[in-house]
Amino acid sequence: MRKYVPKGNVQKQSYYTDRYHVVPQVPRLAVEEDEFFAPQLKILKAKVEIKEASIQIGQMIVEVNAKDNFKAIETLKNECGYAMCSEISAVDYLAQDGEFEIFYQMLNLKSAKRMRLVCRIKENEAIESVEPLFNSANFAEREMFDLFGIYVNNHPFLKRIIMPDDWEGHPLLKTYPLIGDEFASWYEVDKIFGKDAREAIGPENRDPARIERYDTKRFSRVGREVPFDADISQGEPETKIEYSQTVLVNYNKSQKQLDKRK
């Protein structure tokens, strides 16, 4: 039997981990002790249910329920002074918890503080768009939809943005294969020439140093030159070509001093 390999996360894994290695955790501080973030958390708490809140590396991280995301962002914008939404994206935790983590990176320009609103959704759930509040979500949510396949409700124009419209799969998922993706490797051939042309065109060469032994269109051997596109599968004759001295001289054995200036 073949060895079972988990399919949930096919990304590169560390080949060796010390069994006594204990992973440290970035310090998490309580929000209540911070004089800037504490009142804001209180405002947010009055509006939506807070699942978790902490401060990591100078930024507040607040987790809310996914259905409250619009309301939370609205509160942050109108009452806490977060005037810019710098970034929206997701993290794939499907293999561990069957969930996506979606984060909204917010910036308060007046006091130069940043916070991150986090929510988690199940695999086939959709999230509400915050595009009516921040137009920057237009592109950011489209990118999230494209690369993770997360549907966004009430987005004005939810369409793939980076990958082609007819692409299969969502590249940033942990299940997306790194090598051996049949669809991806034949995408151009299938689209331009049709599936029947696969055999005639052949797989794409991804090795820039590849030399094909019997291809006389693109390669030739020194001392064994043959006419263009000649068939050499049965061996090639030795060609009598007078080479200049510099091409074939073996500098390791030759006693000749080529450069007279020395």
Binding site: R28, E87, Q105
Partner: peptide, 25 residues
């Protein structure tokens, strides 16, 4: 051969690149 193993956690750092806010999460 193995690479460094940073602590568990998340970070977002913004710097002022010539074009604007360049952030790494």
């Amino acid at each position: 051969t193995q690479g460094m193993r940073p602590p568990k956690g998340e970070v977002y750092v913004a710097t002022e690149s010539p074009k604007g806010e360049l952030g790494f999460y």
